[in-house]
Amino acid sequence: MRVEIWSDISCPWCYVGKARFAQGLAAFAHAGEVEVVHRSYELDPHRPHGDSALMVDVLAREFGHTLDQAHAFQDRVSASARAEGLEYRTDVATHGNTFDIHRLLHHAKARGRQDALLTLVYRADFAEERSVFDPEVLVALALEAGLDEGEVRGVLADPAAHAEDVRADERQAAEVGVRGVPFFVIDRRYGTSGAQHADTFTHTLEQAWASRPLTSFGATEAATCGPDGTCSSPS
């Protein structure tokens, strides 16, 4: 069974959702038979490269929140992160253009180190005083994840390296109806959005496993219509 996870580095709920999904997967009886694939999604693709700012400032300045609302949002995310054993520092969490990071994650995927690098990048962005929008920080994180320094520098120096891989992920996101992240798709049949709790992920995996090998795809919370002409709304 394959689980595809669309996410962005600048998304705090993706950071929390990754941890919750890992817990839900660990409780799933067939976890060893699940392939997890991380896919690219940019929340702010039009932001200039190299332009980054503290998350709380971006929320207040660019997304219509008051400063108090931005701080309250950050506090909620921080509390949720701590509940999952994650550190989240509201004074360092940063937002910016993530295209180069996604390109590097595709390189890491080709080397079997994608999940390791993604974990390190999230931690650096949300819990440490290291800017993932600094190329030298990215190189250091990649080395920590077990990647080759020369290859990493080559990817970052070549804007075309893995660029099409990122775009392909984003085209697929549009095809399956991703409108926000994190978004989880199981075998292209089940979709669930958001940083659900671990037990919800486990239940969804169990449902997907039990229903194999159905071939229809649908979001778990979407309205449906049956062959008798009746339609239902999500509860």
Rank of each mutant, 00 (worst) to 15 (best):
T192L: 15
S216L: 06
D148K: 09
T200F: 11
E149C: 09
E206V: 04
Q172N: 06
L205Q: 06
R153N: 09
Q172H: 13
T220E: 13
P159C: 00
Y190C: 05
R179I: 13
R188Q: 12
A210I: 00
S216A: 09
C225A: 14
C225K: 14
D199G: 02
Q172K: 12
E149A: 12
A208D: 04
D165G: 03
V152W: 07
E221L: 12
A168D: 08
A174D: 11
D187Y: 08
G194L: 13
G150F: 05
S211D: 14
V155S: 02
E175P: 00
R189S: 11
L147C: 08
G194S: 10
H203T: 12
A157V: 01
W209K: 11
D199L: 04
V152R: 09
Y190L: 14
A210E: 10
A161E: 01
A208M: 08
P182H: 04
P227E: 04
G229A: 06
A174L: 10
V181F: 02
E149I: 07
V166M: 02
Y190D: 03
A198M: 05
P227M: 03
V185P: 04
R167M: 05
H197Q: 15
R212I: 07
E206M: 05
A161F: 00
A161I: 00
D165N: 07
P213W: 03
S211K: 11
L143P: 00
F183S: 13
G194K: 10
A145Y: 02
E151P: 02
G154T: 03
V176K: 09
R167E: 13
T220D: 14
A157Y: 01
L156W: 00
A168N: 10
F184P: 06
V178W: 09
E144F: 00
L147S: 03
F201A: 08
L214C: 04
Q207L: 15
Q196E: 14
E206R: 12
Y190T: 07
E206Q: 15
E151T: 12
G191N: 02
E206S: 12
A223R: 10
T220Y: 09
A222E: 12
T192D: 07
S193F: 07
P182C: 07
A208I: 09
E151A: 15
E164W: 04
A223E: 13
E221R: 10
D165L: 05
A195C: 11
C225Q: 13
G191P: 02
P182V: 05
E144R: 06
A222M: 09
S216M: 02
E221N: 13
D228K: 01
T200R: 14
W209F: 12
Y190H: 13
A222P: 00
E164R: 14
L147N: 07
D187F: 12
E170L: 06
A174S: 14
V155D: 02
G177P: 06
T202M: 04
E170R: 11
C225M: 10
D158F: 01
R189E: 06
G229T: 05
